[in-house]
Design a protein around this nucleic acid. Sequence first.
DNA 1: TATTGTTATACTCTATAACTATA
DNA 2: TATAGTTATAGAGTATAACAATA
Lengths: 167, 167
Amino acid sequence: MAGRRQYEELAQQLSAIGAVKRGLARMLPPDCPSGAVAVLALLDRHGAMRMGRLAELLAVDMSVTSRHVTHCADRGWISRSPDPDDRRSRILTLTVEGTERLAELSDRYVRALARCLADWSDDDVDQLNSQLARLRVSFDDSHHPAPDPANPPDRLPEPQHTAAAPQ
Amino acid sequence: MAGRRQYEELAQQLSAIGAVKRGLARMLPPDCPSGAVAVLALLDRHGAMRMGRLAELLAVDMSVTSRHVTHCADRGWISRSPDPDDRRSRILTLTVEGTERLAELSDRYVRALARCLADWSDDDVDQLNSQLARLRVSFDDSHHPAPDPANPPDRLPEPQHTAAAPQ
DNA sequence: TATTGTTATACTCTATAACTATA
DNA sequence: TATAGTTATAGAGTATAACAATA
């Protein structure tokens, strides 16, 4: 259990890390904002899925997800096919064009990071990745409190696909 | 030097960490957005300073800084006194009200983080803070490339007050 | 009646450019 | 002429609420 000083510092670090995110976003071409990249990357990593699941993975409201997805679909990077099991839903699938697009965008991120982090070891990067993943899990869990083990619910909640286990 | 896989993962972690930032921001009262908190926290940590330096510390454009500062000044949390050495400038100082306000806001962050990170050790939090700080430094440095030691410039650039050494 | 997804609206954060005042 | 700061404008990201279609 850390002290007040550490928590204040963490809040400030998280606030300041936005500059890094903005710098990375500046590598992107004008028709592909960072929200669209996130959509493509998650579909590539986790495979085809419905809107609701994608919204969970993005950790944003479904209305926001809908806009990002429309942006990608308009450009042919994603296809939205009707879900045969529930006609309210649509299945999102990365197209070939989307896969190619993602590869190109990913290259831009990788080149930028490789330049910035040239003096970071493999382990340094892995460690930071792990810690960020853990931070997200800790944060999510505190908002979806774990069920009381002494009083388990009848049904498990939706599986937590929070991209928290990236490998 | 890490591999492509690690860099892709880092880009995605940074994108996803935004959810944590948003969660933290939701702890704030309506008249105090996170931009204002950042201003108050930096003035508290580094003492009175001018707009330009604050913009550097925030790592945003001065126009953005100006808006945040105006927000705070309108509420009496900051005073803007003329700089006797350069009448184009104004010195920003945290007021007593601003200090009190910051303490209350800081409490909200600390309470939220203490709840989420209850199972993190002191060292875990310190380590994450250090790595985030290092990430920011690496990122900044790659945009303000270090001077060639074999060919030093006549004049040193502005000191890099990037809050990179938080302690 | 509840849920999936879309759309309309509003708010925050940011950057660029035009402008004022001073150096 | 250049610099410190302000303001106007525009763009991206997000959330809430109202809505449509389906369960």
